[in-house]
Design a protein around this nucleic acid. Structure first.
Ligand SMILES: [Zn+2]
Ligand SMILES: [Zn+2]
Ligand SMILES: [Zn+2]
Ligand SMILES: [Zn+2]
Lengths: 169, 169
DNA sequence: CTTGACCTTGGATTTAACTCTAAGGTTTAT
DNA sequence: ATAAACCTTAGAGTTAAATCCAAGGTCAAG
């Protein structure tokens, strides 16, 4: 790796920074195009050169992403970060809390899916027999929430797959 | 509403079916373009005419969507549904279970976000004071998972917002 | 006979966050 | 000196599921 020395720190080319932070160079160009991260300088031949400050900014972005923020939200966070004294804790916490509310909604939605899918799964024997009387298909055909457990003339031992349904009441 | 009588059932025009099932007409055209639902006939002037069978198929689609399946997955389910005897319970349950696994992964991911965001939120007073010492921003700046609770010289009473941090250990 | 609601088509747009391509210039190692 | 690895740009493509648009045809009511 070739380090270009700035005053007191290192300068990284795009590929070096990418490797260091485990993102693609494309992603860094994308972030630049969208105003999230602009390298502090360019080499004579036009190569992007990132300094330690830029690295810190990228790490900020990646941490915010890891917490669930979108790039648009991160843009907001960055503008606060660069001008902290003109923002209040309320502003920052507001961003976090509205993201939290969104995440909670999505979790609720997925939990509904989870419960429904689990019920469907539990009602089906999953055996090699014909799906003609499959409880899953029947549940999707009917308009009730009530899922009947399979009771069809499967060739295999019924005890295996009727267990599930009984245990779920 | 004008009902066109087929042999023994009703025929619905696209807007009627859309209203009845609470989808947009555009959505029905979209489903048709993607092979999920083709009206059984057309009027002389080319209007789509859906019969009871088509309605049932749409309801199947909507129920599958409500459970979290994508349209691509629903296409698979529909092809099984139309040819049940050539498929096994294992096939159907397989679709449900792989969706379930995906949903569980997404839930896990969102739960991580949720926990992280909640920790950030708890560490911030959310007051009208300067964000210069905001714990949220500090957490995003630093590379540790450890979030320090705010302890800055806010003008307001500290008891309110330090409670959270202490209660989380 | 005209208004307004409804329908037709094909194609463009939306959202998010990349990811990839093409065509070419630069650096480094051998 | 030349190949490999890296870099540049602008712009197109990806994914899912619609949603919207324009330009025009159809139909029932008054
Ligand atoms: Zn079965
Ligand atoms: Zn089954
Ligand atoms: Zn504060
Ligand atoms: Zn704060």
């Amino acid at each position: 790796m070739v380090m270009i020395v700035e005053q007191g720190g290192f300068m990284y080319r795009i590929g070096e920074l990418a490797k260091q932070c485990e993102v693609k160079a494309d992603t860094l160009r994308f972030y630049e195009k969208h105003g999230l991260l602009t390298p502090s300088s360019r080499s004579d031949s036009g190569y992007r050169l990132y300094n330690d400050n830029d690295v810190e900014r990228l790490r900020f972005i990646l941490r915010a992403k890891a917490v669930g923020f979108t790039l648009a939200e991160i843009t907001e966070l960055l503008s606060i970060e660069l001008d902290k004294s003109n923002w209040a804790c309320a502003d920052v916490k507001g961003l976090v809390d509205s993201k939290l509310a969104y995440v909670n909604e999505r979790i609720t939605e997925l939990n509904h899916f989870q419960v429904s899918l689990q019920r469907l799964s539990d009602a089906c024997c999953g055996g090699p027999e014909s799906a003609e009387h499959c409880s899953i298909l029947e549940a999707l055909e009917s308009n009730t929430d009530n899922i009947k457990c399979e009771n069809h003339a499967h060739d295999h031992d019924a005890s295996e797959y009727t267990k599930n349904c009984q245990s779920k009441g």
